[in-house]
Design a protein around this nucleic acid. Sequence first.
DNA 1: CGACTGACAGATATTGAAATCTGTCAGTGC
DNA 2: GCACTGACAGATTTCAATATCTGTCAGTCG
Lengths: 192, 192
Amino acid sequence: MAEAALTPEDILQTAEEVLRRYGPAKATVVDVARALGVSHGTVYRHFPSKAALREAVTRRWLDRAHAALPGIAAGQEEPGERLRHWLAALFAAKQEKALADPELFETYQVLVGENSALITEHVTGLEDQLAGIIREGQTQGVFAQGDAQMLGRVVFQVTAHFHDPGYAPEWSRPDVDTEFDAVVGLVLKGLM
Amino acid sequence: MAEAALTPEDILQTAEEVLRRYGPAKATVVDVARALGVSHGTVYRHFPSKAALREAVTRRWLDRAHAALPGIAAGQEEPGERLRHWLAALFAAKQEKALADPELFETYQVLVGENSALITEHVTGLEDQLAGIIREGQTQGVFAQGDAQMLGRVVFQVTAHFHDPGYAPEWSRPDVDTEFDAVVGLVLKGLM
DNA sequence: CGACTGACAGATATTGAAATCTGTCAGTGC
DNA sequence: GCACTGACAGATTTCAATATCTGTCAGTCG
């Protein structure tokens, strides 16, 4: 047939476009269905709820936004430098999305505000990457011993200013990069 | 006369009670005037606007909540211990207010959200206290050299999880104190 | 059979009219 | 004279009626 069956991927793609156009406050399931040329009941045959659809869109979006991070975490740089690089990449990705894709960023922020399970998972994944870098630094003797998992959580938390979307308005201030360097400097000294 | 003239202090006291009773979203200048037994025009003879009144109430409230901090900052403890003590006192004060005085805490949070000048001042005052402790630690040789003012800002920022009202919902989680200790531990190591 | 439809109930959002609030100021009275 | 009043204009909020949306499901159609 010319018209293949509607796939979850089609719906996610269209739902993302609808969210980008109307923003999370205005986008409706009916809008998504209309854009797909189907009835909204059809959307519900693929996703159990509007919340589930929104989460799936945001998961895809986050995965794409942070695609570079696992590579950095698993890379060959010296662990201190790697940690700095990873944090800088995380910050850059967040900054870029907040500016260049504000509606999807806002959608993501809504999920953060709702303590969505997706966000918890996402954060845990990032903390695990941090813990991995720290663990390797400890093995190589450049970082002090300690619970790497806990330290990963702590490093994520103390750098919240540069990735927590609640602080997004401050990311365009002129001295953020100086502050970022100062914070990362303190953190690296604290880990050594 | 039996009835002394209405003082700004009377108004602040009553406005605080009205805010505590109705919360920042519902409290009105008319409510405050009614509680004082005067017309609302009178309130405007003492405060130029509702925003100014709200700020003045919050300033008084913040000053009382953090009354213990300057004493700790100027105390005789070893600087590392003093810093830990000061941060713990700040955290304890915020935690206590969030739980025991939620409407005033919410009022404060509204001002934070509005980037009120009061909040900037308040934060600067706290950062100055931190910078003072750090400077003394540097003089005594227990902290490494560096721009103490900047380090004060950095320490305030990395501990945001424990004083920024946006994180208040997390302050009742069971493991906050462990996290607090871990963060302060990392910060102290980073300063040494 | 299985993907899709569309009518439906209850929940949520929008709208516009009415009520209330903020901020001003000429006037009252001690 | 000076602290306070109260009526007022414009802005904001409330409220209830209306419309739209979410989620379900019996039914259609290929």
